[in-house]
Lab assay of single mutants.
Amino acid sequence: DDVELRDGDWRVELKDADEEILRAVEEAIKNGASEQELRELAERLIR
């Protein structure tokens, strides 16, 4: 699993992620995405 989400800690570690993925995830976090939404976003972007 390349995506690590810690309970109560919104730092997201994406291994080997490019800047576009990181920006998309950071934007989702700023917009108040839930953990499930972040997982789905990350899975779509990593593929």
Rank of each mutant, 00 (worst) to 15 (best):
27 E>I: 10
44 R>P: 00
22 L>I: 10
39 R>V: 04
22 L>F: 08
5 L>H: 14
34 S>G: 06
10 W>I: 05
2 D>I: 13
31 N>A: 06
12 V>A: 12
28 A>E: 01
20 E>M: 13
47 R>V: 06
45 L>I: 04
8 G>K: 13
44 R>M: 09
32 G>H: 03
41 L>Y: 02
42 A>H: 06
9 D>T: 04
4 E>D: 09
31 N>H: 08
38 L>E: 00
35 E>N: 06
13 E>A: 14
30 K>L: 09
2 D>R: 10
22 L>W: 15
29 I>Q: 11
14 L>G: 01
3 V>F: 10
36 Q>P: 03
40 E>L: 13
30 K>V: 07
47 R>T: 09
6 R>H: 06
12 V>M: 09
38 L>H: 00
14 L>V: 04
14 L>Q: 01
36 Q>G: 05
43 E>M: 15
46 I>Q: 07
7 D>N: 11
47 R>D: 06
3 V>T: 13
19 E>M: 08
10 W>K: 02
11 R>G: 06
40 E>F: 10
41 L>A: 00
32 G>P: 00
9 D>L: 04
45 L>N: 01
24 A>P: 00
41 L>W: 02
39 R>Y: 05
10 W>R: 02
20 E>F: 15
39 R>S: 03
37 E>T: 06
31 N>V: 02
18 D>G: 14
20 E>T: 13
9 D>W: 14
46 I>M: 15
1 D>C: 06
41 L>H: 00
21 I>R: 01
2 D>S: 13
9 D>I: 05
41 L>N: 00
24 A>D: 01
42 A>Q: 03
13 E>P: 07
5 L>M: 12
43 E>Q: 15
17 A>V: 13
17 A>G: 04
11 R>D: 03
10 W>Y: 04
17 A>P: 02
47 R>G: 11
38 L>Q: 03
15 K>P: 02
10 W>E: 02
18 D>F: 07
9 D>S: 07
35 E>I: 09
41 L>P: 00
25 V>N: 00
42 A>G: 02
44 R>C: 04
5 L>K: 11
29 I>V: 10
25 V>K: 00
38 L>G: 04
20 E>L: 12
45 L>G: 01
46 I>D: 02
35 E>W: 13
9 D>N: 09
6 R>P: 05
9 D>A: 08
4 E>P: 08
44 R>S: 08
45 L>C: 02
11 R>T: 04
29 I>K: 10
32 G>V: 00
14 L>K: 01
30 K>W: 09
24 A>E: 09
25 V>F: 15
11 R>A: 07
29 I>F: 14
42 A>D: 00
12 V>R: 11
1 D>R: 10
22 L>A: 04
45 L>H: 02
4 E>H: 14
30 K>T: 03
15 K>Y: 09
22 L>G: 02
13 E>C: 15
24 A>V: 13
37 E>M: 08
19 E>Q: 11
21 I>G: 01
6 R>W: 15
40 E>Q: 13
21 I>H: 02
1 D>E: 14
29 I>S: 13
43 E>P: 01
31 N>W: 11
46 I>L: 15
40 E>D: 08
37 E>S: 03
35 E>D: 10
29 I>N: 04
12 V>C: 03
47 R>S: 12
34 S>E: 02
46 I>P: 01
41 L>V: 01
37 E>Y: 08
31 N>E: 06
23 R>W: 12
46 I>N: 03
19 E>K: 07
42 A>V: 15
38 L>W: 15
33 A>T: 04
4 E>L: 11
16 D>L: 11
19 E>N: 08
28 A>T: 00
29 I>Y: 15
28 A>Y: 06
4 E>S: 10
39 R>M: 05
32 G>D: 01
33 A>V: 09
26 E>R: 14
30 K>E: 05
45 L>E: 01
37 E>C: 04
13 E>H: 15
28 A>M: 06
39 R>T: 02
7 D>S: 05
37 E>F: 08
30 K>G: 05
37 E>D: 04
20 E>H: 13
26 E>P: 00
33 A>M: 13
43 E>D: 08
11 R>Y: 12
45 L>Y: 05
5 L>Y: 09
2 D>A: 11
47 R>M: 15
34 S>Q: 03
12 V>N: 04
19 E>P: 15
25 V>S: 00
21 I>M: 06
20 E>Y: 15
22 L>T: 05
18 D>S: 06
14 L>S: 01
3 V>M: 12
24 A>W: 09
16 D>R: 09
20 E>S: 13
3 V>G: 13
42 A>C: 09
27 E>P: 00
43 E>H: 15
5 L>Q: 10
43 E>R: 15
26 E>D: 05
3 V>A: 07
23 R>A: 09
28 A>G: 02
42 A>T: 10
28 A>N: 00
23 R>M: 08
13 E>D: 09
18 D>Q: 08
29 I>T: 07
39 R>P: 00
36 Q>K: 10
46 I>S: 06
11 R>E: 04
1 D>N: 11
20 E>D: 10
13 E>R: 14
41 L>S: 00
4 E>K: 11
22 L>P: 00
31 N>F: 07
23 R>Q: 07
17 A>Y: 11
29 I>C: 04
16 D>T: 08
7 D>Q: 07
1 D>V: 10
25 V>P: 00
9 D>R: 04
2 D>V: 11
20 E>V: 10
19 E>C: 12
23 R>F: 09
21 I>V: 10
39 R>E: 03
27 E>Q: 10
18 D>R: 08
4 E>N: 10
16 D>N: 12
33 A>F: 12
12 V>F: 04
39 R>L: 06
36 Q>D: 11
25 V>A: 00
13 E>W: 15
6 R>A: 11
5 L>T: 11
39 R>D: 01
22 L>R: 11
15 K>T: 07
11 R>P: 05
18 D>M: 03
19 E>V: 13
22 L>M: 11
26 E>Y: 15
11 R>C: 06
42 A>E: 02
2 D>Q: 11
25 V>G: 00
42 A>W: 15
14 L>F: 10
8 G>I: 14
27 E>W: 13
22 L>K: 09
45 L>S: 01
11 R>N: 05
10 W>P: 02
38 L>I: 13
36 Q>V: 09
5 L>W: 14
44 R>Q: 07
23 R>S: 06
42 A>M: 15
42 A>K: 05
35 E>P: 06
17 A>L: 09
45 L>V: 03
18 D>P: 15
14 L>I: 07
24 A>Y: 08
18 D>K: 10
22 L>S: 03
46 I>V: 09
21 I>T: 09
13 E>F: 15
27 E>G: 04
23 R>H: 06
9 D>Q: 08
15 K>F: 10
